[in-house]
Design a protein around this nucleic acid. Structure first.
Length: 847
RNA sequence: GGGCGAGUGGCGGAAUUGGUAGACGCGUUGGUCUUAGGAACCAAUAGUGCAAACUGUGAAGGUUCGAGUCCUUUCUCGCCUACCA
């Protein structure tokens, strides 16, 4: 029998799909639309298995929806700006543009070989002028709406490379490339006012019914809403400071007040800028802050000022004011009122500096003489030692009551605080979208007129210079507007900005006047299913949600606020790790299995240590190259395997054995197909078989449900079941009249998973018409005979095959005739009978 | 420290949502064919037991005629997050 030649057939069908423009999509108002989007890749060089998994999952869904009659939009593009291009270009002496475009070409071809149902006519690349031009327009729109502003902010500064570093480029306080100690440097930068939408972004989460709860929780925590109040403390001391504001969620514990703590960046610090001890303290704070361990251990240190704060509820009480390392400048007001009795951090601090620890809340099950010891008590209870607040229920009642009192006395007011900070979008980098802003000679900001857009990135840059290459582009930097000279902003936009609206661009990829056409997004948006890795749970998804709202803000033309109505986060692709005797990582290609040992290829004397399965990464060398796999086994086999072993939302373990078995399965399916085909084409019959009808109907039902629920691994099991069933079926049965019809339906069910294979099979059966997802006949699902479980005292004792819908009495009669049942019922009194129709009967006896 | 999630054969995982636990695949074992097989095909495969049967979904309890599934307690592992006042 001829083997299935995947190379020939996959190539053939990909060509046909492309030539016939099968996946190109147009607006069709007579059809329901379905917008399926997978997170677009960064063009790093080659696709990896994570991409294969992500895009296969999306492709299965897209193909299924298309067969179901939806007008499916399934586009692909490139998140093409970003640092790796600059680094790679520097290393290889290329331009970032050439490097990126070459990678895009490679990866596009690789993706095409997976047989994805993508509308490539909508391809976009964020590094193209016709993309980032619109982004610059959006920037200016947000600027006009007051949603973009400039402020000074700290960055990680590498003094050797003279460059700004991302947090992940700072390793143990040192620059990843230069090894120099990273400094904090204040730069004037651009910010998006995302915090303006904190509440809306939080509320919007409730509408996202089909988002994973995990992601919603992460966003909720990130936004970090907390209810409390601000308190304006009166200050006494030698400095010209009258008041310091604090935010607190527990104003009710004010009688436990024993110190006030400030961030080292608090404005009060300006009075200490010449104080050597303070500067030393400040430096120590910045050191402890960097390592994760330090935060976990969390040693509290402070610097005492000569200021004192008055307790607003008990004015006789004065407490010292400290600078403390655990107070963050960018949360609240950068100042904390310390209540050691009921906050663990405050407790640790008070212990260290011998400050008073007062107990003002007792747990419900303790008496009024309860005293905090060893650790703070942050839990609920009743207020004590708090004068007129005594007896209040904490925190529900007491917080609200205290705020009322503070408001009445004009000492404080209710306040809702959010952890979410504004989004700093400036990057001191070349390979990003230029910010369409210029400065006059006095440094005043001017938005570029829209007709001067796009601000194009200059091509002839010198990446060998230190710092941002755009800074040294004298010619490029200078602009003349109405005869006046201006200097360009040389920062570029964070690449997260590019990915915050690309889903809109896919709706109108060719529109030249604006980022999208209203008509297009009215039809296509929102994205019906978004698929990607959970690592983007917060930033990318939150930024995208913000961006839609920012465009909508003061814009009556635009109504959609949530970009992604459903979200699916797929798991990672993992692989075992290997190390040789010197603890060097080895790739799966360098090892071999001999018996139950793992040894080095070409040198079987070297035993390899097998480590746990971890997500594929170049550093651990546990990667498998998709291109190699596609070449060896074909796209359908890869698609089959990547879906087969685990549910899509969980991590999947890559295994060569599993891959081979998927490959073999396709070969077996092909052999089966050949047998069926021969039967259909060569044997004539007028006999009609009910059994295969029933089987097919059940299969369609199962696969449909499993597709809807993303149980793609179970679909593969359904495919194996089908194979086993049909193999046996055609062995014992001659051709029957309805075999072909059922077989065709089965092939359609397999199409989302192995599209090349089923296309070839159907073409062999001369299927010429457009295919549709088969309906299943509910009445055909019903079995006439079913198995009923007989339980005696709750234990399964027998299974009997009976007619469907059999009555309790009839089944009981049959059951009692059963030998085993009879044995267990012998001489016992039947106390009760539980009968569940078509499922089981449970006979309860007296012992 | 906080949050979320998960524990089912040798392994990956199924289980119609309270009703036959272990579908399907991998691996393993035995067999057939073969000069050979890392091919193909057939069969077996949760554990104990010759068997009847008993025990089994991390552990302990509970609800129920009936629990992998629901409730309480507890253990372990994974991921995320981090001094958020």
């Amino acid at each position: 029998m001829e083997r299935y030649n995947f190379k020939e057939f996959e190539h053939k069908w990909q060509k046909i799909w492309e030539e016939k423009k099968i996946f190109q999509t147009k607006i069709d108002k007579n059809k329901k639309k379905f917008y399926c989007l997978e997170m677009f890749p960064y063009p790093s060089g080659k696709i990896h298995m994570g991409h294969v998994r992500n895009y296969t999952i999306g492709d299965v869904l897209s193909r299924y929806k298309k067969l179901k009659g939806f007008n499916v939009l399934h586009p692909m593009g490139w998140d093409a700006f970003g640092m790796p291009a600059e680094n790679a270009a520097r290393e290889n002496n290329l331009s970032p543009k050439d490097w990126t475009n070459k990678n895009i070409e490679t990866m596009k071809n690789q993706l095409k070989r997976l047989g994805l149902s993508i509308d490539w006519s909508r391809e976009i690349s964020t590094c193209n002028e016709d993309y980032y031009k619109h982004q610059q327009i959006f920037f200016l729109e947000l600027f006009e709406k007051g949603l973009v502003y400039r402020k000074e902010n700290y960055v990680n500064w590498d003094p050797v490379d003279e460059t700004v570093l991302a947090n992940e480029q700072v390793i143990d306080g040192k620059g990843w490339r230069s090894g120099a100690t990273v400094e904090r440097k204040k730069l004037s930068q651009w910010f998006f006012n995302i915090s303006k939408f904190s509440q809306k972004l939080l509320d919007g989460l409730d509408d996202l019914k089909t988002w994973p709860n995990k992601v919603k929780t992460m966003q909720k925590n990130w936004i970090g809403k907390s209810f409390g109040c601000e308190i304006n403390f009166e200050i006494e001391g030698e400095l010209p400071i009258k008041n310091i504001k604090c935010f607190t969620t527990r104003p009710d514990t004010l009688f436990g007040f024993s110190f006030l703590a400030l961030s080292v960046d608090h404005e009060v610090s300006k009075f200490y800028k010449n104080n050597k001890d303070f500067l030393k303290f400040k430096e120590e704070c910045s050191k402890t802050g960097t390592t994760e361990e330090a935060i976990a251990v969390g040693e509290k240190i402070g610097f005492k000022t000569n200021l004192f704060a008055k307790n607003p509820l008990s004015p006789d009480q004065m407490v010292p004011v400290y600078f403390a390392n655990f107070v963050l400048m960018d949360y609240g007001f950068g100042a904390v009122f310390g209540c050691p009795g009921h906050d663990q951090r405050d407790y640790d601090f008070a212990k260290k500096y011998n400050l008073e620890i007062k107990t003002v809340v007792r747990p419900h099950d303790k008496k009024d003489d309860f005293k905090v010891s060893n650790e703070a008590y942050p839990g609920p209870g009743v207020l004590i030692n708090s004068d007129f607040l005594n007896g209040q229920k904490a925190p529900e009642q007491s917080v609200i009551e205290t705020i009322k009192i503070l408001e009445k006395r004009k000492i404080g007011k209710k306040r809702i605080n959010y952890r979410l900070k504004d989004w700093g979008v400036s990057r001191q980098r070349y390979w990003g979208c230029p910010i369409p802003i210029v400065y006059d000679k006095d440094g005043n900001v001017k938005a570029l007129p829209k007709e001067m857009l796009p601000v194009k990135l200059p091509d002839d840059i010198d990446l060998s210079v230190k710092g941002n290459p755009l800074d040294s582009q004298k010619k490029w930097k200078e602009v003349t507007i109405d005869g006046k000279t201006y200097t360009r902003e040389t920062d570029t936009l964070d690449t997260f900005v590019c990915s915050s609206w690309y889903y809109l661009r896919f709706c109108s990829p060719k529109e030249i006047n604006y980022g999208f056409k209203k008509n297009d997004i009215d039809y296509w948006m929102p994205v019906d299913q978004y698929i990607g890795g959970v690592e983007h749970a917060i930033l990318h998804l939150l930024y995208s949600r913000f961006f839609m709202r920012a465009i909508e803000h003061n814009n009556s033309n635009f109504q959609i606020t949530e970009p992604f109505s459903s979200l699916f986060t797929q798991g990672m692709v993992c692989h075992e790790t290997y190390k040789d005797e010197n603890n060097n990582w080895l790739s799966p290609q360098e090892i071999e299995r001999v018996g139950n040992k793992v040894v080095k290829k070409n040198d079987h004397s070297k035993i390899i240590k097998v480590g746990p399965s971890e997500s594929m990464s170049k550093s651990k060398k546990n990667v498998v190259d998709p291109e190699f796999i596609i070449n060896n086994y074909g796209a359908d086999a890869v698609r089959l395997f990547i879906l087969s072993d685990s549910p899509p939302e969980k991590d999947v373990q890559w295994s060569e054995q599993g891959m081979v078995s998927s490959y073999k399965f396709i070969q077996k399916l092909w052999a089966l197909h050949t047998n069926i085909k021969n039967k259909i084409l060569n044997e004539n019959s007028e006999d009609f078989d009910e059994e295969i009808e029933k089987f097919t109907n059940q299969l369609i039902e199962k696969i449909t449900n499993n597709l809807e629920k993303f149980n793609y691994n179970v679909i593969i099991a359904n495919m194996y079941e089908t194979f086993n069933y049909l193999s046996n079926y055609i062995k014992v049965n001659k051709n029957i009249k309805n075999l072909e019809m059922n077989y065709r339906k089965i092939l359609i069910c397999f199409t989302p998973i192995v599209p090349h294979f089923t296309s070839e099979c159907m073409s062999e059966l001369n299927v010429k018409n457009e295919i549709h997802w088969p309906d299943y006949d509910v009445s055909a699902l019903q079995e006439e005979e079913i198995n009923i479980v007989i339980q005696i005292n709750g234990k399964k004792r027998a299974i009997i095959n009976v007619k469907k819908d059999i009555s309790e009495n009839d089944i009981l009669k049959i059951a009692k005739e059963n030998k085993i049942v009879d044995k267990y019922l012998n001489n016992k009194l039947v106390k009760n009978i539980i009968f569940v129709q078509n499922r089981l009967i449970n006979i309860l006896t007296d012992e």
